[in-house]
Amino acid sequence: MHAIMSKTVGAEPVNSIYQRLPSAIGARIRVVAWLSLLSEIVIVGTGGAVRLTGSGLGCPTWPNCVVGSLVPTEEMGLHGVIEFANRLMTGLIGIIAIAAVVLLWRLRRERKDLFVLAVILVGGVLAQALVGGVTVWTGLNPFIVGFHFTVSLIMVCLATVLVHRVYLAPGPRTLVVPVGFAGLAHATSFVVALTVIMGVLTTASGPHSGDADAGRTGFNAELLEHLHAWPGYATLVLTIVLLAASVGGKLPVRRFVVALLVIELVQILVGLLQANLGLPPVLVGLHMVLACVLAAAMTALVLNLKAPTGITPDDTKVIGTSELSSRRG
């Protein structure tokens, strides 16, 4: 009898917590999704600060900052503080990712797409932490540092997908733009990816290594600057074509194309300034963050090429998920 009562009493708090979790997509889940995206972009900025201030080995070991201490000691100075702050940012992103999984727990069957995305983001945080450890262990190998940044961009894109989907009902999706426009948008996304990859190689070959003793790729940085700029300009031209087609055809994705174009223009301006001013750290860091914003904008445009059957992207701004489901029904 006592055992039965103990189990019953013990189960009540668990059931109470479970009942407090969202049973439908609402404000809490959407806020966490946005926090996930914003934090994934912010950590690129903090990671850039680590690299651009020469603090890449401010904590020379991992997972401890120094041998025998999880946190930086006084001897590590400012570099240790900057590097450790970036590690703390990883912990914050992990907490946000776990919060998304918890909030979606009751919806894990009904909204399997969102739940799987949240779990992938948790796994991505863990993977990024390990890659960060390898980066330290290898003395800031430029190829691993570049891979670390590339994975961060992928995480930004995944978080963008999560934000997008918390505003849409699950189920079949159909194109809301002409097939030719969709093809051009996908081609543009490929050129954006190429631009980013060349940018990563360019940075890995430039002066900002994260530490005075860190190696470089050995590639010709000046040549890579051109190889990075060419697909960047191609992206601009393709986006202008997309804008003309979306405005002329009054397509529902035109606002996403406008946002993409504005980000590209700012990114190109910053790129030209940093190249002509001797790569000042502030501009290089801004260029890195804008690359993430560009990736998110491109992802958002591609995602909005389709909408749940019978629903346009404009509809999702004024109606909720439950109403979308009823319309689809």
Rank of each mutant, 00 (worst) to 15 (best):
P60M: 04
P308Q: 11
V136C: 05
G123W: 11
E12A: 12
L52C: 08
Q19P: 00
T160R: 05
V81Q: 13
V136I: 13
A118N: 06
A296N: 08
I96A: 04
G146Q: 02
I98C: 07
T90K: 03
A49G: 14
G218A: 07
K317V: 06
A159M: 04
A118S: 14
T316C: 11
V119R: 05
N304C: 05
I311V: 15
F147R: 01
I93D: 03
S209A: 15
L107Y: 03
G45V: 10
L283N: 03
E222N: 01
P172Q: 02
W230R: 05
G58P: 03
S152P: 01
N15E: 14
L236P: 05
N220L: 02
S209N: 09
V262F: 12
L201R: 05
L117S: 09
L158M: 14
G329Q: 14
T312S: 15
L35Q: 05
V284Y: 11
F84W: 14
T150I: 12
L52N: 08
L277Y: 10
E323K: 12
A97S: 14
G94D: 01
R87F: 05
H2Y: 06
K306Y: 12
I240C: 12
V101N: 05
L261G: 02
P60Q: 02
E110L: 02
H287W: 12
M5R: 13
V166R: 02
F143N: 02
V44N: 11
L301V: 06
G54W: 06
I95F: 11
A221M: 09
T53Q: 05
L57G: 00
T160Q: 09
I95A: 13
S69I: 01
R28T: 09
P178D: 13
N304Q: 13
T299R: 10
L175N: 15
R327A: 10
F115A: 08
A49L: 15
G329K: 13
L52M: 08
N276W: 09
V257N: 07
L162H: 03
N276S: 13
P72K: 07
G232D: 07
R108A: 09
I96H: 06
L162K: 01
Q274M: 09
F190P: 00
L121W: 03
G91D: 04
L242C: 11
A99Q: 02
